[in-house]
Structures are given as C-alpha cells and as structure tokens.
C-alpha cells in the first residue's frame, strides 16, 4: 500500500478529446510543486492512460492515480474519479485548471465534499495556516488572496498564468477502480472538433498574442492579423466585435466574456480598447496598438502606439520583421 506525503497536493489533469494531456498539465504540476508534493489524477479512455501517466511523471508528478472513463466530455464521472483519489490521498489542496471541463469537475467535487472553492487563481502560496490562492479581479484592477475557513481548498488556476515548472519524477502509477456514479448526466450524441491550426501557438498559453478588431473590416481582411501573428510567432485573438462580425471563431475572443491573457507581448490591431476588452489583456507585459483614431482608449494603456491605418502599417511591419530575420 502506497502512502502519500502529508503535504500532498492533488492535481487533476485534464485530457483533450484526442487523448492528449491538456496544455495546463505542466503549469499545474509546477504550481503544486511550489507548495507541496504533487500527486496527479488522470481520468481518460483506457488506451491513453499509460502515455498520460508517463507524461504526468515527466512534468513532475511524484505519483499518478489513473482511472478509466468512457468519455472526457461529461464532468460528473470525472468528479467521481477525483473524489476517490481525494479520499485515498487526503491532500492539503486540490488544483485544477480553470477550463470549461476542469472547473465543472472542481465545482461538483467541492459540493460533494463541502470544501471551499477558490476560482480563477493566478498563483498559489503557502502560509503557516495552509494554502492560499491569489486572484486578479475585475479584469486586473485588483489583486486579492483567498483561503478556506477550514479543510483543503479546491483551487482552479487560470490557464497560462503559472511560469514555474516541476522537476521530472520516476513514474509511480496506481490504477483506481472507480465504479460508475449515480449522478444524473446528459447524453452526448456527437462531438466535432473545430479545426485548430496546430502550427500557431495556442491563445491562452502563447507568450505573444496579436488580436484584431472591427477595424479589420471583413473576414478576408482579418487574414492580416494571422500574417503578423505568424511573423511574430504569436497566437491569434480578437475583440468581441470581430467575433460578432464573423471574422473569427468565438474561442479567440479576448476580454471580460472571453479569454483572459497575460502574454509578454499583446498587439491590438483595429481595436478601440473598450473596458471589457481591456479586462482580458491589460495585464500583458508589453502592449502595442495600431488604430487610426488617436482618441481610441487602447492608447491609454499602450506601451507603443501608432495612429494610422492597419492596412498600410501592418504589411510594412511584416516586411521589416522579415528583413530582420534574413539578416
């Protein structure tokens, strides 16, 4: 019988629909290693478990608990697995990604165990009394910390917010046998993946992001955003106006009701800088804006701004970048 370290931090690792480890794996284990001994939980289709466990150990899990599930879409069965792992490990905190799937697993699990939920954390620390989560509220205007009144906190961590990485470990795997729970669940008939171009960095975890707004004018002209992104090796984002106009899919929306990003570089093209857009990007290290309206609010927070036409300036920026690379 394996015993678990008293300072164990249980980390629920999400699996993509294709059976790959989610992008958040390394940062969650990195965050856990900073406050205790990371123990990973994996729930996936049987054929993927072995590779996922090896990856988790490589990313810093001291031990890995794995269980087979029929689908990674429904969250009640995933919560069943986490619940069993929790009872076995008795950890000091439970970490998950603040992604659609993982936050539902967190919520279901916290309700079942009456544990305190800390959501959308940007980091975790420890004080004499236990584990504390830090947050950024109202689009980065406030920094707060939270803790539970008692018990292990269940913390969801914003994807792309943790830079620390854990040391690789030898694989210590243990299979859990989780019986199907009795939660009411929906039926999933059909899953179709939205074609993501894998060549480009993923928006949430990209170190550079180029976003386009209504100023790009049309889906065809939005191509310019992709071109600059590729020249900079950046991920692609958009304003809600650009999403509503159908220039790009909703998953690319940056802001209050979209994705919150904190990259090293954020380039806003033809985006006015409405407060709800800023809520998703104003914690970027460096902000560049190109807009033809000198009064656009985006310039109030830009480190480098150009007042002018994106269709004239961006092609020149791309050539200058290419010229630089060729040197």
């Amino acid at each position: 019988m394996t015993t678990f370290a008293p300072d164990s931090i249980l980390v629920f690792l999400e699996t993509t629909l294709g059976g790959e480890p989610a992008k958040s794996t390394a940062e969650l284990l990195g965050a856990a290693a900073g406050i205790g001994t990371p123990v990973a939980v994996i729930a996936a289709e049987a054929e993927h478990l072995e590779a996922l466990a090896a990856h988790a150990a490589q990313a810093g899990a001291h031990s890995v608990l794995s269980a087979q599930v029929d689908s990674v879409v429904l969250t009640a069965p995933l919560a069943d697995v986490l619940q069993q792992a929790y009872e076995l490990v008795q950890p000091q905190a439970v970490l998950l990604a603040h992604s659609l799937t993982s936050r539902e697993v967190a919520a279901r699990f916290a309700v079942r165990h009456k544990l305190a939920l800390s959501v959308d954390a940007l980091g975790v620390q420890r004080d004499e009394q236990g584990v504390i989560a830090s947050h950024s509220i109202y689009g980065g205007a406030f920094a707060t910390t939270s803790a539970p009144t008692f018990g292990a906190p269940v913390i969801t961590v914003r994807v792309g917010s943790i830079e620390e990485r854990a040391q690789a470990q030898e694989l210590a795997l243990r299979a859990l046998d989780v019986a199907a729970g009795d939660s009411a669940e929906i039926t999933v008939q059909d899953v179709s993946s939205v074609q993501a171009d894998s060549a480009r960095p993923e928006l949430r975890t990209a170190t550079k992001v180029v976003s386009g707004g209504r100023g790009l004018g049309s889906a065809e002209q939005f191509e310019l955003v992709y071109q600059l992104a590729d020249a900079l090796e950046a991920g692609v984002g958009a304003s809600r106006a650009a999403v509503d106009a159908g220039f790009i899919e909703h998953a690319a929306q940056v802001g209050q009701t979209g994705v919150a990003v904190s990259p090293q570089l954020y380039v806003a093209l033809g985006i006015s800088g409405a407060i709800q857009h800023k809520a998703g990007m104003q914690t970027a290290k460096t902000i560049v804006a190109i807009n033809k309206d000198s009064d656009a609010p985006i310039f109030e927070i830009a480190d480098f701004g150009i007042v002018g036409d994106v269709f004239k300036i961006v092609p020149r920026v791309i050539s200058a970048l290419e010229a630089r690379k060729a040197q």
Partner: peptide, 11 residues
C-alpha cells in the same frame, strides 16, 4: 461549446 470542439447533447 467545448474547448476546440462542439458537442450535440440532449437530456
């Protein structure tokens, strides 16, 4: 709406 996919669901 899932991340990178959509699913038809019913209940």
């Amino acid at each position: 709406e899932l991340e990178g996919a959509t699913a038809q669901v019913s209940t």
